[in-house]
Amino acid sequence: MAIYSTSDFRNGLKVMIDGSPCAMVDVDFVKPGKGQAFCRVKYRNLLTGRVNEKTWKSGESIEGADVMDTDMEYLYTDGEHWHFMNPETYEQIEADASALGDTAKWIKGQEKCVVTLWNDNPIAVEPPNFVELAVIETDPGVRGDTSGGGGKPATLEGGAVVRVPLFIDVGELLKVDARTGEYVSRVKQ
């Protein structure tokens, strides 16, 4: 694996920090007057999603992380694992709940997801920006109300709860922004 010196540090660079694969999100070079130069880095731990900060002395080196983002299609879950397929090679992989995190509630099958592999093991799964999911529970729809004002909570297949307009009924298919968890529109079936 590549070794990166502080002069190679860039936003997005993936490296091993304290045993975890991490992505740099903010890199700054600081140096007081004639003194010691430092590389001050904010990084996201790709296993936990947490952002931390660490400083290296200028000139130090750290190990790169063998991390790759791959486009994959979600197939199904057996309750314990979520199964994905590389649409080009037809290779299949299984990811566990900790890799899925919140993504589990946004996908039901056939979605194109971005699977992050570390040493070929899935550590994170990003759903598509927009997903289509059916409403399984909400207060009865109010006919004729298309104002969109106010709204009400609706539970979707997969378990996500989103705010929807009052006219939405159980069984309807909705387009939702998975990044923000916001209702976008009804989907004509």
Partner: peptide, 19 residues
């Protein structure tokens, strides 16, 4: 959090000053 645990005074002074 710093990668190195230097025992040099100026190292820590520079760190505190800049950070």
């Amino acid at each position: 959090t710093v990668s190195e645990q230097s025992d040099e005074r100026d190292f820590w002074l520079d760190l505190l000053l800049s950070h």
